[in-house]
Write a protein that binds this DNA or RNA. Sequence first.
DNA 1: AACTATATATAATA
DNA 2: TATTATATATAGTT
Lengths: 184, 184
Amino acid sequence: MGRRKIEIAEVKDPNNKQVTFSKRRSGLFKKAFELSVLCGVELAIVMFSPGKRPHSFGHPSVNIVADKFLWKKPTSNVVRANYVRENDAPNEVDVMDRLSQQLSGVEVHINEEHEKATELDKREKEQEASQAQNKELLNSPVLQRMVEDYVDAIEVSECMLLLAKEPVVGISNRTITKRRRRRN
Amino acid sequence: MGRRKIEIAEVKDPNNKQVTFSKRRSGLFKKAFELSVLCGVELAIVMFSPGKRPHSFGHPSVNIVADKFLWKKPTSNVVRANYVRENDAPNEVDVMDRLSQQLSGVEVHINEEHEKATELDKREKEQEASQAQNKELLNSPVLQRMVEDYVDAIEVSECMLLLAKEPVVGISNRTITKRRRRRN
DNA sequence: AACTATATATAATA
DNA sequence: TATTATATATAGTT
């Protein structure tokens, strides 16, 4: 996607790696933003830079998406208000403004989110403590969620399998080439 | 990026919206994968499809990335270890090995389990409250997978909420804590 | 940090 | 779905 084709392998030169990261992170966030607007999709991305610094992107915000992901209720029939209208197609400046807002705006809700996070920690520990609670889940709508998530996991896997079809130089094929098994 | 330039505004036609979502989600995941390999970046993506279904992507895995975010908390009692040093970044073989492991780990069961998952999904729509059938899954490997994936989803949500607690733009170096996962 | 030449993603089409 | 023309991202360059 540039002057020359590159192999998808770790960039050795730290300088080049940092430049590549900056460019591609911007690209990824832009793609994420476009996807969210085009398809009315709410999404969040978290990552560590080569310098091990955390970066995130969220639309409408990381915490909102995360919140919904965790606390998703069976409100799939509820019509949401569109945060982007037809004639409000954002230009590049709008996009960058929005990105900046999203990237820095989370500070505003720190205290509020701290409560939630604490609550979530509590929940995790509870779940970790007793496996019997898993059985509790089976009698709840949570199982419905698990089924959905499982299907999604398969979709993700298929996506990765698709990626694996593209040869990566310097990588052993041993694990990959034994794919494509059918059911008996 | 296609035959014609499009405005970044919500796609009206549901059919087209679904097609666009599928294409761009694949593209986003591919970009995310490439970024993670090129720059040694670990990242996770969660999103809701137009049909409000959750999707996720993680490299090297969702829960690993979630772990690092989750345990990045500035708590004082956690052992500090700099697993994030530059030269600890996984090389391409490591990355591909892990990816391959993940791929082969799920690929073996994809066809078989996809059927089951589809079947489950169908049942879910036909009988939303059919708990009896759900209980039949209690002892199946499929359920195991579902539970794991569900835990992954929770972990991502948690890490994102925790991320929201700490602004990530322009942040100075922080000590990142290490922690080994209980699962697997 | 800006600038191209080129690779890649994808919108429209078949 | 699969293909193809075009828009976009970005690798190397300045």
